[in-house]
Design a binder for these strands. Structure first.
Length: 373
RNA sequence: UGGGGUGUAGCCAAGCGGUUAAGGCACGGGACUUUGACUCCCGCAACGUAGGUUCAAAUCCUGCCACCCCAG
């Protein structure tokens, strides 16, 4: 694992513990290396899920068990206020605007590696460690590298960070395979060894997403139309749908239909219309995008124009692109058309193993313009 | 009102006397997944109604009901 050079009298490391197996093992590894490890659990969401379950309470139980078994102190810290102000408000604003934000990228920038990092440093720690699957190369400057386990790589979510933030961060499990990590957890008798990986918006967790949004953004029903201008269904509110979405449209078969599924291909915010199309067609694909407020981990773009690979969503294979900077923004041209690239989502750039940075997508250039007849 | 046509699951839609009554869409569940999606897997329900013919009827016949089209 990554080594951290520390002086003998100052070797405290704060581990951000989620109650999952990855951060549990991160703490375990650091403890075994002799660091003064302190586990800290962040509680950033106050409400229970739709079943009335507070997953944070359950997760904290796991943190307690793990910390007890590896014999380190543990605490909890609450950044709910910061999360609401810096992440959740943006999240809602984006949905109101008809876009599809990625709150977890922002959460890392604003909470985990800002508010929480400051907190950790305030506890006189040398570094903050988390269970992220990512690696850091600190030889000359700081580079964010993909995890060794390509299937678990989480650099996509870290693309909004800067080298300055990463200076005092370590990712102890970034060079481990998930399977090996679980075995290690099991051998050490950690209670989280076989715990299912958590998914869903960080801190909010898995839940019926539409129902969740409805609590904050009231329904605003309207029509679904196809490119012929025919009304083919009703929607509950444009904010509840995203480009490329299939499920939840409720459109059955019709006399003249092809029998294929229907997908969301656009939104008309002015007229409150959801534009849908049966089957996968060119309107669903795009050839380029523009993004603003691009963040480069190194602090600046590699060049005014450069070629690299990019992802438009987590767990997508890398796509070759050409990036042209203009100010803080850029245009990204795709080598091959991409399906359902969505405003609000993040485009993240890679140069081989290195994650360069990324930014929120503003607009896309469709392979075929949507023209309602 | 007269003539014609159609009635199979939430929606399309196969079926033409003997099938466990296809398939697709939708929907539900699961897998995958620290965003939202996509994808994959599994599940899912029906012969308008009442009689008749027949060993056997979703399939043939009759009445009724509903809807559609043409005529008026």
């Amino acid at each position: 694992m990554e080594q951290l050079s520390v002086s003998a009298d100052k070797n405290r490391i704060i581990v951000g513990m989620s109650g999952g197996v990855d951060s549990s093992v991160a703490a375990l590894l650091l403890k075994r290396q002799g660091y003064d490890v302190v586990g800290v659990f962040m509680k950033n969401w106050e409400e229970n899920d739709e079943d009335g379950v507070c997953t944070a309470t359950l997760d904290y139980e796991d943190v307690r068990r793990v910390c007890d078994s590896i014999d380190i102190p543990y605490y909890t810290v609450n950044f709910s206020k910061e999360y609401r102000e810096r992440v959740f408000s943006y999240f809602l604003d984006e949905y109101r605007a008809g876009r599809t934000p990625n709150p977890d990228v922002l959460c890392n920038c604003e909470i985990k590696f800002k508010a929480f990092l400051d907190f950790a440093i305030g506890l006189d720690a040398t570094a903050l460690a988390t269970g992220h699957y990512a690696r850091l190369d600190k030889k000359n400057g700081i580079r964010l590298l993909r995890a060794l386990d390509a299937d678990k790589d989480q650099t996509y979510f870290l693309a909004g960070l800067t080298s300055r933030q990463l200076e005092r961060v370590i990712f102890p499990v970034g060079d481990m395979q998930k399977g090996i990590l679980r075995n290690l957890a099991a051998e050490a008798g950690l209670s989280t060894a076989y715990k299912k990986d958590s998914t869903g918006v960080c801190f909010i967790g898995e839940r019926n997403f539409k129902q969740f949004l409805m609590q904050y953004l009231p329904a605003c029903p309207g029509d679904m139309i196809d490119i012929n201008g025919h009304i083919v269904g009703k929607h509950d509110g444009l904010m509840y749908y995203t480009l490329g979405q299939r499920r939840g449209l409720g459109i059955g078969g019709s006399k003249d239909g092809s029998g294929e599924s229907w997908f969301v291909i656009g939104k008309d915010m002015q007229r409150n219309l959801l534009i849908v199309q049966q089957g996968e067609h060119d309107e669903l694909y795009s050839t380029a995008l523009t993004a603003s407020q691009i963040n480069f981990i190194s602090g600046c773009a590699p060049a005014q124009e450069f070629q690299c690979t990019a992802k438009f969503r987590y767990r997508q294979s890398d796509q070759p692109v050409n990036v042209t900077m203009h100010g803080n923004g850029c245009t990204v041209d795709f080598k091959t058309p991409q399906r359902a690239v969505t405003p609000g989502q993040w485009v993240v750039f890679y140069d081989g193993e290195a994650c360069l940075g990324g930014g929120a997508i503003d607009e896309v250039r469709p392979l075929k313009k949507i023209i309602i007849k």
